[in-house]
Design a protein around this nucleic acid. Structure first.
Lengths: 208, 208
DNA sequence: ATTTGATTGGAACGTATGTTTCAAACAACT
DNA sequence: AGTTGTTTGAAACATACGTTCCAATCAAAT
């Protein structure tokens, strides 16, 4: 049913790349099916509609991510001593970077999708994601609060969103930025090093 | 020719709002012309094509902005004593917030447009903007370097992009976020106060 | 070997889009 | 008043889209 080269997975693979590259509305089902080398009708057969396909693409990503999030946050939660701010941010960022171990450039594709979902004001995607993964934010907030108890919750709320912006924006364009940096500074920066820089920046902002 | 209520301006007004609210592909010319109360054909008559209309919308916004940027950065550049990091960031953020003085909800509309333009990987918009406003980044870098001379240029490059991500994302979703914050914390946060929080966060990250 | 249910293929449907056409209305100037 | 160039209006155009239909094919179980 869910082999690596089943029609369903071929559609998901093609759709995920095209959605990230071109956007949801700008990607037609015909582009997807011709890239996946399957019949046009198979999208509606397997997924029901284009909207359902979009949600399925996100669903697959989040299934990869949630195991990573769960194990990292469980580890933080069972610790007696409060974590450092850097560690909490790393718990959020780590699983996202791990996608690259499974797929090439998986992180940037996912972040681009996330950025596009965020821009969607039609909003069915935002609601869908918040519904499924809102619990993550409250777990994150709890840990930040342990790491930095004097920060008012209202400040935390805003800084969380400042942080998300940096993460999505940077990781979505990471390929392009890495190339520019390499050309300008003759210094190769891999994604792991980039994440370190990002965590430093964000942790300082959180602790401001 | 360019009266406030000329057909051309009515189209631009309607298009700018709808593009920000719904996105470029999701906004049809018929929506624009019916909201602007003009004939459908007038878009192609005055602008040539939908793509050209999109660029015209951005052009008008950037004309407002560039005068603000120029005056603020000239002021920084002529100062003998180095500016503070916060001041440099404020010079970038200030003109954007000033749009609210001209239009209601102008900032969030513009930032949403910016966010969408960034998401557009078709890319003709990104190139168009970088071409027109790339010079701003080097002026910004120079001033940050004056404020914080020991920061290596390569670090500055990355932190600049971390910062842009926060700015675009936060301001693009500022309406929605302000509503959530108001509901959750019973505390009204106007855009000016939000900008202050954002500058604090970003300056701390810059100085990390 | 036959039957049954799931999947695929090819074609068509209805609808919405950006663009074009061309006549009517308007404006400015002689 | 008449002419000329610009702008509007209503309709049609070609195209691309998501979706649906139904026959052909396939896989597995009897």
């Amino acid at each position: 049913m869910n082999n690596k080269n089943s029609t369903k997975d071929k559609i998901l693979d093609a759709a995920e790349t095209l959605f990230a590259e071109r956007g949801f509305a700008e990607t037609s089902l015909r582009m997807i099916t011709s890239r996946a080398d399957v019949n046009l009708a198979s999208v509606n057969y397997h997924f029901g509609s284009k909207k359902a396909l979009i949600q399925a693409v996100f669903d697959r990503f989040f299934q990869h991510l949630s195991t990573g999030f769960n194990s990292r946050f469980e580890q933080l939660e069972k610790q007696e001593i409060p974590p450092k701010v850097e560690e909490v941010i790393a718990a959020l960022l780590g699983p996202i970077l791990d996608i690259d171990n499974v797929r090439t450039h998986g992180t940037s594709i996912f972040m681009r999708l996330l950025g596009r979902a965020y821009a969607e004001t039609q909003g069915h995607l935002r609601r869908f994601m918040l519904e499924k993964y809102g619990y993550l934010l409250s777990r994150f907030n709890k840990q930040i609060h342990r790491a930095y108890p004097t920060l008012p919750m209202e400040q935390l709320f805003w800084r969380l969103h400042f942080m998300l912006g940096s993460m999505v924006f940077t990781l979505a364009g990471s390929q392009a930025l890495q190339e520019i940096a390499e050309a300008d500074f003759k210094e190769v920066v891999d994604t792991k090093a980039l994440a370190g820089k990002l965590i430093n920046f964000l942790a300082a902002g959180m602790k401001a």
